[in-house]
Design a protein around this nucleic acid. Sequence first.
RNA 1: GUGGCUAUAGCUCAGUCGGUAGAGCGCCUGGUUGUGGUCCAGGAGGUCGCCGGUUCAAGCCCGGUUAGCCACCCCA
Length: 463
Amino acid sequence: MARPTPLSGFPEWLPDGRVVEQHVLDVLQRTFELHGFAGIETRAVEPLDQLLRKGETSKEVYVLRRLQEDADDAAEGSAPQDKQLGLHFDLTVPFARYVLENAGRLAFPFKRYQIQKVWRGERPQEGRFREFVQADVDVVGAGDLPYHYEVELPLVMADALAALRDVGVPPVRILVNNRKVAEGFYRGLGLEDVEGVLRQVDKLDKVGPEAVAELLQAEQGATPEQAKACLELAGISGDDASVVDRVRALAASYGAGTDLLETGLGELAALVEAAARRAPGVVVADLRIARGLDYYTGSVYETVLVGHEQLGSICSGGRYDTLASDGKNTYPGVGLSIGVSRLVSRLLSAGLVTATRGVPTAVLVAVTDEATRGHSDAVAAALRARGIPADVAPTAAKFGKQIKFADRRGIPFVWFPGQPGDDGEADGADQVKDIRSGEQVDADAATWEPPAEDRHPRVVPAG
RNA sequence: GUGGCUAUAGCUCAGUCGGUAGAGCGCCUGGUUGUGGUCCAGGAGGUCGCCGGUUCAAGCCCGGUUAGCCACCCCA
């Protein structure tokens, strides 16, 4: 078989990269559980009509189809559209379905985390995949959901990302805004197409203020005055409650104050104040954050890695007044999603984080000759019995080659079984060599301990 | 879905005017007689993405195709 080429957009890491990814996943799970979120996993597929609800058509859905389907269809007639299955493109839609399906068995407010692969049929590029891992936390209420959860959720993520700092993950900045502020301000100005204005403002980083001003006038029918006001709002950012005063003053100067704006500003102030206290320097109010998605109704969040802003957001989310609804009951929610694959791919490609080795093995037991392999196996078994990952050399090659075998894999220790003497008795003790220092000492497999930091692969800052 | 760029050894890449395929790193063997890394010597490894065309002759020129990368769109 010819050598296969990699499939673009379906990332696969080498073993040492997987060690890094697994560490990130472990830290996220641990942090989410520390904050009281229950873990769930939903199936990979949802009915296609569920996935294509409201404004989600842009996320290209992979459809699941059986190879035999054509034959079956011929016999039974075409499968109805609503029975078709698609792979989920995020974890929010499946979660909303799960909440409705299990509403009677869940206790609200329900806090859950969910770490799974998702699929999107988009054109891949750096930090952008067709198959990737998301780690979501959400809180969902029945009927209502107190505002303070909009403060707490980003702080959970701040905590999780801070827990990764010591392995070399750069600091993060969580940018927050509030839909009520944007909507209240735009409506106060007389701009009714809030969604359209948000989409134009969202392009600010890419095309610059002049182009956005032109777009607002050309596409949204804004006056030059209104466009200028939108840009001034987008220019406001800061990590304390003074941003709220600046927005209020700006609105007043345009006569654009509304009740909705005031409500949003009150929420934004509460968030910024709490964040300044609980995670100083991480959360920044940024009135430019729009997020094109139409279902957010309160706080919205985006997170950038400091120094890697070009990568885009690695963790986003917001408040939904209607995360799920069965027509009778409404379940509001707030949550965020970390793009684990995007984060890990940057950590690896930029050489920020590395694993001390790609194999779990701490000790390679050398084989003197095939006749005494049993002795080497016994040494490895003794080490494993005490929780020390050990492997036995594949061949009784020259010791130089066996050491090289360990070196190539990053295995820190090579164990040399004692040599049998002429009379068949053991002639000298076993020895263990630290191949990094070259130090070699007598050792007993029943008692020897590697340094704690060598026992398992570790994830450390690179360079 | 739109646009641009690229494709040569395991990896990163050279390859002049169209004239029988190169380097560095890695790998294997030996120097080192059971202890790696440095050094020295030697060696293996190629469908030049694929299909077709032009030509006496194509890695190189032309057409197509596939894949990859980047940007747009959108988003984790």
